[in-house]
Design a protein around this nucleic acid. Structure first.
Lengths: 195, 195, 195, 195
DNA sequence: GATGAATGAGACTTCATTCAT
DNA sequence: TATGAATGAAGTCTCATTCAT
């Protein structure tokens, strides 16, 4: 399997660095090859084309990302803790890997619609994780029974995504992780005053 | 003032249509000129360069967009109604103008970082509108006093943006406007069960 | 006759200034029109096209230039003095009008071959003046009888032209006029030691 | 080193031909590529941009040109013979390569000021060769001691340049080489009658 | 005569991908 | 496997000229 070959990962890592440093449009295949220490042509022994590098990059990185989150969720008993774990790990991973944060929040969004469709596919398992938490909360009575599942998922993902993007666009000048509990409270309680 | 000249608006409208139909990267200046019914060179009498068309497009359309929302908010007395008006008008306007929805939610995000910075500038008045509503809610006791203003703004905007993007990516197959009240409830109450 | 109309000369003078200040390739018709204080279209009431402005500019300016030299020559009796007058007036006029020097020595040479042919036509009366002096010198025994007329003319014109071009390219940092007598000596006597 | 690669020279030669045949402004990169038998993009593996082709062309060709002249001068003992060799080789080389003559005397002068500055740099070694001959003549008493070196250089170069340009503009209808001895005599003796 | 908004042809350069070695 | 020289399609913008007013 190609993915075990060292050059495959070399190229993926090189792509993340090159895109984070140069931006999406200035990241030519030749630049990625150079950073990876291989010839331009070698790229095409491991990837179908440039888009395939990007999709693979997203697959690999997001696979790990989601894996971490799923694991973190599974360690918790209560739904509220699970939701917190999800938020915390989402932030924690981007806080730890600034390159990845820049690439996923800013640069990869400059890709064309076709690539963004594939990226959405990669995100599906993450969205399913979110769904599981919501469903569990509804089932055990922690969350209201009348919640519209896709909508809640969109609220949660949209919020996390926007918070991370803001952090990235502000050049990561503040502590992203410190926001986790406030975001958690907001999602659980909304804006209104509780009795 | 240039903006009163008919060709200026002709070109803006043509750009929205061309980008919505062909996608960002396949929208050559010559295509926009043709759709607008002017010569290629005429574009450059009204816009500095291609990017300037896109920024201007966003400025004009978002200016109207925000204006509509602000007006709608001002007609309401209570904060909860204002927030609802904001959500409803956000959805209503994209539901009414599918071309614009595609352009703002998908195509314009493919632009380079410089353009995205300018787009962010255009969005600022909208974010200020959101802030005003939140502040009012806090002041009159409708919302909790310990809310983190930027975070709440990010939650609201992130949620609306994600909901609209999902609707666009699903080819607008369902009624976006119908989601307004559920989204409103979610933002006000969060996920938890109220006493 | 067009040439008596004030705008004709306004445009010529504007062209000299614009070309001297901006260089040949950055001298758009619109820039010349603006400097002349007329509308772009007005240019075409007085000149057939852009090339016609340049040729006319050269005709007018060189006509005056040659006229001055011819007059100066005619005031002299002896051939050697006539040659000196020619050299001196050639230098004097460029020294007096730096704009014109830049335009004729540098900028107008960037024109295409067709225009340069026409410019050569304009120069012919000047070359004839040179010829007259040489012929007179041969006839009265001041100059050798075996001189090849076109060659001598080319030497004289080539030398003057190169001296002026060097002065212009050195940003006119030295006194061009002061070179006249040395140039005159060089042309009359050559390099060799006289007995 | 790039200059040893065959395509480098192929492109240079093609450029000389294309410019000589079509004129400077009608010499598109695509035309040069076609004549050189390479793809358009290949040009940019060997040259930074179009101007770089022209500068390199001039460097290579003038390098050889000057080399030939320097060699020819060195074979002579007496200063007068050296000056003759310089003139003779100057003419001989252009007479042998009509394309090059057209390109250097007419077409390359249409380039913008920046390029012409670079061209002047390339010419400097040639001007130095001329200087050496003049100095030697002054030192050994063949030439007058009061000669102004830069002025003499300008006279010699200006004369040769003008003679060649005239020959080119007359479509090379006469024997350029045959002029060498008359030009030599003119430079050495000037116009005056020697005792 | 005078205006100036509109026209539209034309070319340099980049970069993803290939293929002979 | 690995290389990297070569390919060639494709698009933005300028500016001389026109013509309706």
């Amino acid at each position: 399997m190609k993915k075990n070959k060292p050059k495959y990962n070399q190229i993926i890592e090189a792509a993340v660095e090159v895109i984070a440093e140069n931006g999406y449009h200035a990241s030519q295949v030749s630049k990625i090859a150079k950073k990876a220490g291989v010839a331009d042509g070698t790229i095409y022994l491991y990837f179908k084309n440039k888009e395939d590098i990007l999709v693979s990059l997203f697959e690999v990185k997001m696979g790990q990302f989601i894996e971490q989150i799923a694991q973190s969720i599974n360690e918790k008993q209560h739904v509220s803790d699970k939701l917190y774990a999800l938020i915390e790990m989402h932030f924690r991973q981007f806080a730890k890997d600034h390159h990845l944060a820049v690439v996923t929040q800013l640069e990869l969004r400059q890709s064309n619609s076709e690539l963004r469709w594939k990226i959405n596919e990669v995100l599906k398992p993450y969205l399913s994780e979110i769904d599981l938490v919501i469903k569990e909360g509804i089932d055990d009575g922690s969350f209201r029974g009348d919640l519209n599942l896709p909508l809640v998922r969109q609220m949660i993902f949209g919020t996390l995504d926007e918070v991370v993007t803001n952090w990235v666009m502000n050049e990561q000048r503040y502590n992203l992780l410190a926001q986790a509990s406030a975001v958690h409270a907001l999602i659980i309680n909304g804006l209104s005053v509780k009795e």
